[in-house]
Design a protein around this nucleic acid. Structure first.
Length: 149
DNA sequence: GCCAACGTTGGC
DNA sequence: GCCAACGTTGGC
């Protein structure tokens, strides 16, 4: 099992939304590096669910990959905000995975708490200027972060 | 709302 | 292939 961190703006889609829906296609990723990570995911991989661009950014829950990568249908929809006119149906540019709810953390593990920890020195999330919305997480990082709960 | 960081686009 | 302009991300 591999582990990942996935960012979402809670105003757009929060851990409470995932808890209610149980499962969700993670559409709208339009960054090549993030897409490449999506494509290496396997069903069953662990996901740290992260709220960004909000009052207290941080890890708020756990999800898992419920379906490995497939073509993101929103790239072909001209009315959709994530429409990509350059993507072709016979060679889709963008992928998504389905994500399933596992649990909500007892408290938010804030970005603030994760910064400056030697255990997370190599974790891209806490490095300056990081903007990737999908990041790999090592087993040690996963255990450390959830150990703060 | 500000703005630094960074990815993408497109002229050359 | 360079790089300025532009758009987006996301912490603050």
């Amino acid at each position: 099992m591999q582990r990942w961190l996935m960012k979402t703006e809670p105003e757009a889609f929060s851990i409470a939304d995932l808890a209610r829906k149980r499962r969700e296609p993670w559409d709208g990723v339009r960054n090549y590096q993030a897409r490449n990570y999506l494509r290496t995911m396997h069903k069953g991989d662990g996901v740290l669910f992260y709220h960004s661009n909000c009052a207290v950014p941080g890890v708020v829950g756990i999800a898992r990959v419920a379906r490995a990568a497939y073509a993101d249908p929103t790239q072909f929809d001209p009315r959709h905000v994530h429409f990509d006119p350059a993507s072709r149906r016979d060679d889709p540019r963008w992928s998504l995975v389905d994500v399933a709810y596992v649990r909500t953390l007892g408290r938010t593990i804030a970005l603030d708490e994760l910064k400056g920890r030697p255990e997370l020195a190599d974790f891209a999330l806490v490095r300056r200027g990081n903007r990737l919305s999908v990041l790999p997480v090592s087993a040690a990082q996963w255990d450390f972060i959830l150990g703060l709960e």
